[in-house]
Amino acid sequence: MCDCGKSDLTLLDGVLAEYASVRGSLITILQKAQEIYGYLPTDVLYRVAEATGSTPAKVMGVATFYTQFRLTPVGKHLIMLCKGTACHVNGADAVEKAICEELKIKDGETSDDGLFSLKTVACLGCCSLSPVMMIDEDTYGSLTPAKAVEIIRTIKGGDAA
């Protein structure tokens, strides 16, 4: 269960040097750690607990409270599909269904080829372009099921090239 000893913990040193002694920085540290490792491996959480003087229970509690944090690795591309009110009204459910069928995954899962992870989010704040999704840093608006699938296929094609 514990994957201790697998991660290169020296990568954390800079972040810990900057924030470990600053009160209330646990969330910031975990955010930076996730940027480094792509997710929050258990040994990293232990290291953070040790360096910040928190109990592992507290670190785990925080890491599992916020939806931004992931305890398992994600695919190469993270699809964040907005399920906000405007997106709901404008057909986000159908878009989600199309994406799930295309990638053969459910919300929170990663495709078999490791390329895409799907995560539905509460609201991306781009309501006027609804339905919306974000893939990595890019936002795609006014989606239809077909358009969403096309975007995914294009990214996949780009990776293959």
Partner: peptide
């Protein structure tokens, strides 16, 4: 930066979050 929790819009929850909890 918040980390994804709507309830943090509630002011006491926001304070808890600011404190790293």
């Amino acid at each position: 930066a918040g980390a994804g929790a709507f309830v943090c819009g509630e002011e006491t929850a926001l304070i808890e979050s600011l404190e790293g909890s």
